[in-house]
Design a protein around this nucleic acid. Structure first.
Lengths: 256, 256
DNA sequence: GCGATCAGCGGCACG
DNA sequence: CGTGCCGTTGATCGC
């Protein structure tokens, strides 16, 4: 009975049973696939999960230094080492973790538990807004949400009191360049499709200075969205507590 | 001596010593900060690292169901439970994990180990390209890289054999809408700044069909970048094995 | 399966 | 510090 026979047995049992397995020891790691990497020898924690994901954790950062998902995992003793291999076909990639010592190996049977219930996502805010778009601007009426365009999926489409199309792009955090160009993409498509001039509103808690500059050059509008995260047991998922539009009229808008 | 005194002692010792600590048990979790979330009771693995990161792992997905970074961590027994609290000031957020049972607690002293050496990142490809831009197109000469613009940071600026400015945006994987609009952002800025017509090349292994359509509407070019990931001990970090440009001449380009 | 986008994105590097 | 952006992004959701 060699030094790794217990580790081998536990891991194989774990894979079969879809358990969570924790291994701690001195190891190296080599990954190749979408990139290639090499991890020099050191003490680390390797985590194998029931869905075939594997990750190598060092003692810093939440994210693993190496990882793979949707893998087939196998292990074997090789010379004086113990090697865990994870493979995947599409995309083709593989990870090998070679242990020189295994300090700890633990297998945990984990019944499937409920996933997280999270509030305050963009999806939540979108739902709330759709119930009353007048929060953005008086007289704003919903037409559609999550509409598929050729150039992407638009968050909210509405019509203002003057009968203009309004495209709304919603961000749960500070808007950046990407948010602006995303909105602009939808704008160009709508204007081309409908051959009309539409208004575009970027709705977010705040916007980066340079992004605002770009937004204005595109003739788009920014509206500040203040929302409050409600306790999780409350009726709504979040609460929109304030919303300042720049209240740019369409006339001003077109004058640009 | 209650049931959790060992857990408390180990975690406190771990925090002091910046160890890695693994706790497995029945718990709930509540997060509030940038969003709010609640995790129903279930068996999970909690990982505390020496840098103040903490993550709660279920038996699926590489990413933790809950997590925090840069925290101060504390723990205490409360009634018949054991609670780990992580706090952070900026942004203000907190996580509480309440254990009903602790099945396993292990503390590991982890000397700092070398980080990953990875090859094939965009940075690597950029470096290789800068040594010989003629791979993209004969006669292309580098002017600058990673240049800060008002509207972002441009990967590569070059000059073609006809003396035209060429803006190159590099992607290590299939280019999408965002890649196209990113390039377009830099183009508009350069043309405005220099009052010249410049060429824009999106360099990537492939491009999404709809993104290509958008690219062409913007009058930009796509060039296919084939690269090979070299074994990690080789001299170069990656090797560019082929590069098909559409070989659109500037004349054709301007004719659009 | 692919396409498109969000993410409590995290993490990094440079100003 | 903030700014911009990459990531072996991962993960979700809709077609």
């Amino acid at each position: 009975m060699t030094g790794f026979s217990n580790a081998k047995a536990e891991i194989e049992k774990g894979i079969l049973n879809r358990d969570m397995v924790v291994i701690v020891g001195e190891c190296i790691a080599e990954y190749s696939g979408r990139a290639t990497s090499k991890l020099a020898r050191g003490k680390r924690m390797v985590l194998i999960k029931g869905d075939g994901s594997i990750s190598i954790h060092q003692n810093r950062l939440v994210r693993p230094t190496n990882y793979m998902v949707n893998t087939k995992i196998g292990c074997r003793e090789e010379n004086a080492t113990f090697v865990i291999r994870a493979n995947r076909q599409k995309p083709a990639e593989k990870l090998a973790v070679t242990f020189y010592t295994v300090l700890e190996i633990k297998r945990f049977e984990m019944e499937q538990s409920d996933d997280l219930r999270l509030s305050g996502s963009e999806r939540d805010l979108n739902e709330i807004l759709m119930q009353d778009l007048s929060m953005i601007e008086p007289g704003l009426k919903p037409i559609n949400q999550q509409q598929h365009f050729r150039r992407g999926i638009c968050d909210i489409i509405a019509e203002d009191r003057d009968g203009n199309f309004v495209i709304v792009e919603l961000k749960r955090r500070e808007a950046d360049f990407a948010a602006v160009t995303q909105l602009q993409r939808y704008m160009k498509e709508v204007e081309k499709l409908k051959s009309i001039k539409a208004r575009g509103i970027l709705l977010a808690p705040s916007i980066r200075k340079n992004a605002l500059e770009l937004l204005e050059q595109y003739g788009l509008e920014f509206a500040k969205l203040d929302f409050e995260l409600t306790p999780h047991d409350s009726a709504s998922k979040a609460k929109i507590i304030g919303l300042e539009t720049k209240q740019q009229t369409l006339a001003q808008h077109l004058a640009k």
